[in-house]
C-alpha cells in the first residue's frame, strides 16, 4: 500500500476528483447555506437602496470563468430587477458580451414588465482595459456613445441625461481578473467615492480582501459566495423558489463538499506517506 501511494500515478488523483465532482452532479445534491456577514453586506448594499436607483453592472468575465461567476451575476441581476433598479450593463472583457446577453435574456423572460432603454441598457464591450473606466467616470460619452446595437445614448430614455459613472448609486462588479474589481476600485470607487460591491473568482478574493470595507462595500467569493447570496435572495423573494435557474450556485455546492473532502483526504494521505517514509529513512 505504502509503495503504491508513494509512487502514486497522478491519474488516480484525477479520477478521484472527477468522481467527487460527477457523483453529486448526477445525484443532484443540494444543501442549505448559512450566509456570512460579508455576503449579507453585499446583499444589503443593493437591497437597501431606494427602488429605482442607478446601478452600474460591470460584468467583466468570460465563458472560461462562467462556472464560477455566472450564478452570482444572474443573482445580482435578479435582485436589481426585483428592486426595480436601473441597470447599466457593461463589460471590459472582449468575450463578455455573450455573458451580458444572458442576463438580458433573463430580464426579458423573468421580468417582462421591465423595458429596455428605460429600466436597463446594454452598453456592450469597451476595449482598453482600465481606460474606459477612467474616461467613463469623467464623461461617459467619451468612451461609450451608443448601446450594443449602435443606438445613440441620446435616444434612450435612461441614458439621455446620464453624464458619467459618478452619478450611479452603486457599482456592481463581477470580475474574473484583469481588468476587473481592482481596476474599478482604483479608478472609480477610490477616486470618486462611488459605493462598489464585487463578486469575484475564488482565486481573486483573498487578494481583494484588503479593499474591504473602505474601498469595497462587500465581496462575494466564487460559488460559495454566490450560493449564500442565492439563499438570501430566495429568503427575500420566495417566488424564486419555483425557479430552478435561480439556484444554480446552491446546486454547485454539492460537488464542492465532496471534492473538498477528497482534497483533505489527499493532503492527509500525502502527509502519512511523508511521515512513514521519514521513519523508514526514505526521505
Amino acid at each position: 500500500m505504502y509503495e503504491f501511494l508513494k509512487n502514486l500515478d497522478r491519474r488516480w488523483i484525477f479520477l478521484l476528483i472527477l468522481l467527487a465532482v460527477a457523483i453529486p452532479i448526477l445525484g443532484e445534491w443540494q444543501f442549505p447555506e448559512k450566509p456570512s456577514p460579508m455576503v449579507q453586506s453585499v446583499f444589503d448594499a443593493i437591497e437597501n437602496l431606494p427602488a429605482g436607483s442607478d446601478i452600474w453592472m460591470a460584468y467583466d468575465y468570460d465563458p472560461g470563468s462562467q462556472g464560477e461567476l455566472h450564478p452570482m451575476a444572474l443573482a445580482f441581476t435578479r435582485q436589481c430587477a426585483f428592486k426595480r433598479h436601473k441597470m447599466y450593463f457593461m463589460t471590459l472583457w472582449p468575450q463578455g458580451p455573450p455573458m451580458i446577453q444572458k442576463n438580458i435574456e433573463l430580464l426579458i423572460k423573468e421580468f417582462p414588465d421591465l423595458e429596455y432603454g428605460v429600466d436597463y441598457v446594454n452598453l456592450g464591450y469597451r476595449p482598453g482595459y482600465e481606460g474606459p473606466i477612467k474616461l467613463a467616470v469623467i464623461d461617459l460619452r467619451k468612451t461609450i456613445a451608443a448601446d450594443v446595437d449602435g443606438k445613440s445614448l441620446d435616444d434612450l430614455p435612461m441614458t439621455r441625461d446620464f453624464k458619467n459613472i459618478q452619478e450611479v448609486d452603486l457599482i456592481v462588479n463581477v470580475s474574473a481578473g484583469y481588468p476587473g474589481t481592482k481596476e474599478w476600485v482604483l479608478y472609480a470607487s477610490t477616486s470618486y467615492n462611488i459605493p462598489t460591491v464585487a463578486g469575484c473568482t475564488g482565486v481573486q478574493a483573498p487578494y481583494l480582501y484588503p479593499y474591504v470595507p473602505q474601498q469595497l462595500d462587500g465581496l462575494l467569493g466564487a460559488i460559495k459566495g454566490a450560493a449564500e447570496y442565492e439563499f438570501l435572495l430566495l429568503e427575500a423573494y420566495p417566488s424564486l423558489r419555483e425557479n430552478p435557474k435561480a439556484q444554480e450556485a446552491l446546486r454547485r455546492m454539492g460537488p464542492q463538499l465532496l471534492a473538498h473532502l477528497v482534497l483533505i483526504g489527499l493532503i492527509v494521505a500525502g502527509n502519512v506517506i511523508y511521515f512513514v517514509g521519514r521513519s523508514r529513512g526514505d526521505v
Binding site: 431606494p50 429605482g52 436607483s53 459618478q166
Partner: peptide, 13 residues
C-alpha cells in the same frame, strides 16, 4: 438635469 429625491447635490459638467 434631474436627480431623484433625497439628493442634495448636482454636478454640472
Amino acid at each position: 438635469g434631474e436627480v431623484p429625491s433625497q439628493t442634495e447635490t448636482f454636478t454640472d459638467q
